[in-house]
Nucleic acid binder design. Sequence first.
DNA 1: ACCTGAACACCGTTCAAGT
DNA 2: ACCTGAACACCGTTCAAGT
Lengths: 229, 229
Amino acid sequence: VAQVAAGAGASGNRRASQLSRGQIVEAALNIVQESGLDSLSMRRLSKQLGVSTMAPYYYVDDKNGLIELVVEAVLSRVELPGPEAGAWDVRLRLLIDAVDAELRSHPGIGEVLLAGILSTHQELLDAVMELLFEAGFDGRDVLLAYAVLHTYLFGRHKVAMSSVEIPLDLKGAPDWMAPHLHEVTGRDFYAFGVETIIAGFKAKLAAQEAGKPRRSARSTAVKGRRPRS
Amino acid sequence: VAQVAAGAGASGNRRASQLSRGQIVEAALNIVQESGLDSLSMRRLSKQLGVSTMAPYYYVDDKNGLIELVVEAVLSRVELPGPEAGAWDVRLRLLIDAVDAELRSHPGIGEVLLAGILSTHQELLDAVMELLFEAGFDGRDVLLAYAVLHTYLFGRHKVAMSSVEIPLDLKGAPDWMAPHLHEVTGRDFYAFGVETIIAGFKAKLAAQEAGKPRRSARSTAVKGRRPRS
DNA sequence: ACCTGAACACCGTTCAAGT
DNA sequence: ACCTGAACACCGTTCAAGT
């Protein structure tokens, strides 16, 4: 009776003999990737694994623990750019791009990270903060700048821009705006935001250095190259 | 415990004789305000109203409909700054501040808005977009700039900064950073982000104008008469 | 050690029925 | 018109039990 469910799954969910954390995370990632995070339930997961509802609980504390593992699996795939990649802004862009690419292929994960569970992947956090420090922010502002990046990067994946309705009576901007809504892609959205925020950082840094001219204005020299979209 | 429902209405949940949409929204707002959006369930709501589980369904389509009404109720409280308040950036700041103040006192609402249900409150959307247009963005960029604002403003309420751990081995920034984590408030976080984004907008606008110097696009130039169709 | 099954306390929603 | 109650199809998780 209910021996091994080897033949039950008509849709590619084989089970060797034992469950494993890796298998569980993989299956969870699968569900998240094709049905979103909301559809990830312990019951559905165990069903897909061909196992009883409670079986995964042997390998995982609870649903939150599972989600943390999934997040970790996704984030561990991004590669940190080395110092040879360029100045802080170039490297920051590369890093952020890499994170975003990973999140784009795992809908629902951004939402989890937004809530603040990034602490699971400390290396990424460290890398971003170090770049911000290198940019010229002091301790307090490194934190705040990181928070801005965090919020935009992880928050944007929950935004469904398609539901935004263009105000048709925008003074002076009547007809020519509506068509733009459909030609704007998620990538444009992403690029504009990241560029805006980094430009804002630079402006803040410039203002900060104008305030206290004690230090050599060395870091403003970075401004030269800038990837034009 | 809360069976005050019958006749002696002490504080929150009295019931005259009939239910009403207003009562339902009020009760929902109450739950959201003190327990967060996750705790808002139709069953708990009806219990608090002293009514059967299905009673609210007579006034509301479903849970999503309820949430839309709640969002609308929260957002309808923000006052749009008039043209006399100042230039576009000042007015944008005022408007955003007003929205944020409302969201701060209704935890969970930001999360809903983030997903794109702002379409329920068109006036706010119109006001922001008009300010961005006045700032000098063209149709496509108005949309993108709005999206950035939207993401940050509504996304930030889901971010729990307290869980962020400061990298202790940050090169050159060892000890003096950690204490900052506790002194940074949600308000600092908010201010830094909004300032960064607005500064980023200005930088983008400046770059845009440097590109095409023929047009004298001054920020207050758009006060249109220009009837639509 | 590894997994199952029943059970508990929740959900949103449908549907027939009551007044 | 307005509301109730039972029922259905879900949740996450506890706990005792099986192998």
